[in-house]
Simulated assay, not measured.
Amino acid sequence: MSSTDSANATQATSGVSMKRSLRDLFVSQGVLPFFLGGALIIFTLATDKFLTFDNIVNVARQSVYLVLASLGQMIVLVTGGFDLSIGTAIAITSVVSASVMVFVAGMFPDMIWLALFMGILAGFASALLIGGINGVGVAKFNVSPFIMTLGVQSMGAGVALFITGGVPVGGLPYDFGDFFGFGRILGVPVPVVIALIVIVAIWIMMNRTKLGSHIYAIGGNIKAANLSGINTGRTLLLAYLACSLLASLAGVLLTARVESGETNLGGTMALESIAACVIAGVSLRGGIGRVESVVLGAFFIVLVQNGMNLLQIGSYMQMVLLGGLLIMAVVIDQLRYKMLIGDR
């Protein structure tokens, strides 16, 4: 064999190896590595303000809220359902916690931390009520997650508007926004510290506990999980409660950030959290999803929004592009699923 033929054979072999590596990466991780790499290249070439340390740190801070909501969405998606009421859980948490804080602070002006504690607790309780209603409807009455969470979303939005009359709840204690919105622990923003703790906790739950294994089992085959002795109803209820609780935590941090109770907080969070999960390789059929990938998926969504803001792309067009990304990710997820089935 001549040296030219040998070189051509080597190139062909390396080409096949590269295609196989990319295919394996796609099957195992989904579209996220390709989308993330493409976004980094496009925005870096488009503006020199994008790939800077300060901007990446800013993106990481802004992604905290979506990361928390996406982790909750992932838990529900892995069971084979999804939650459209995440935005409502955030809004209800915001207005309830703000209203209770203002009321308790007015009653006990010298006990500000009591007001903060009672407000946050009330916000969590209101979100858990939403998650409980979703969980009971899906687990006990076999209502479609789409219909159940859509109905709860509408009800919750109406309750939030009823509580506030459409007017933001102001006059929150200064310490609330100062610590939970803009405070730092050892130089790290408090929201980032809280998000890191939650990420570790959810990773342990999903990968090292019976609850996590039960959630994956239900998503893989709920009938088989039921026959194997798993209490599928209780597990589904806990999944929806966890989703609402994580959304509620995001609502508390967002309320501290804007320093008022807002009914429109989290309005796009349901769409964005589903997009982050699907792009991160979480299967809409259930049973597949990784915590670390979802965190990176949420970071990717905020990164793309940041890049579009730097390029001065309007908010309406951003909604179009985000919806297009979601549709593209779902279509590609179908292809990935067929490849997964073919490999088995």
Rank of each mutant, 00 (worst) to 15 (best):
F124I: 11
I90E: 02
F34K: 10
G37Y: 00
M339L: 11
L296H: 07
Y337F: 05
V59S: 13
Q334F: 05
I163A: 11
G187S: 11
R208W: 01
L321G: 14
G220Y: 01
K19F: 01
A250L: 06
G135S: 10
L40A: 14
D48H: 07
M317G: 11
A276H: 06
S17L: 07
G166N: 11
A98H: 04
S283E: 08
Y240E: 05
S244E: 08
V31N: 09
V152H: 02
V78I: 15
I75A: 04
Q305V: 04
G267E: 05
T52Y: 00
T52N: 13
V291L: 04
L310A: 09
G166D: 02
I341T: 13
D24W: 02
V252R: 06
W113V: 07
L249P: 14
L66H: 05
V138L: 03
I56H: 04
G233V: 07
F35G: 13
M328V: 12
V330K: 03
G212Q: 03
P33K: 08
F35D: 10
I332D: 03
A239H: 01
S126V: 05
C243W: 00
C243L: 04
S14F: 01
A195E: 06
S85T: 05
V67T: 14
I75P: 07
V294W: 01
D83P: 08
R344F: 01
D5P: 08
V278C: 08
V252P: 14
R61M: 02
K223A: 08
I215F: 02
L186A: 15
S28T: 11
S99Y: 00
L45D: 07
L51W: 00
L36A: 15
L77Y: 02
M339E: 07
G261D: 06
Q62K: 12
S213D: 09
G87L: 03
V27Q: 06
A39S: 14
R257W: 01
I202L: 08
I130L: 13
G251Y: 02
T268R: 09
L128W: 01
L22Q: 04
I218R: 06
G87R: 02
L51R: 11
D54N: 15
P145F: 01
M107T: 06
S70C: 09
K49R: 12
N231L: 01
K19G: 14
G219S: 09
L211A: 13
V282S: 07
A12F: 00
V136K: 05
F300E: 04
K19W: 00
F103T: 15
A105K: 07
S260G: 15
F182K: 13
A276S: 13
L211H: 03
A125I: 06
I218E: 03
G106I: 06
N306V: 03
E262V: 10
A69H: 04
A98G: 12
L246A: 12
M328A: 15
A276T: 07
V96K: 06
G181H: 04
T47R: 14
Q73L: 02
F176G: 15
V258T: 15
E262Q: 15
M111P: 07
R344Q: 12
C277T: 09
G286Q: 09
I222L: 02
N226S: 12
T268M: 02
V320Y: 01
G229M: 05
G324P: 10
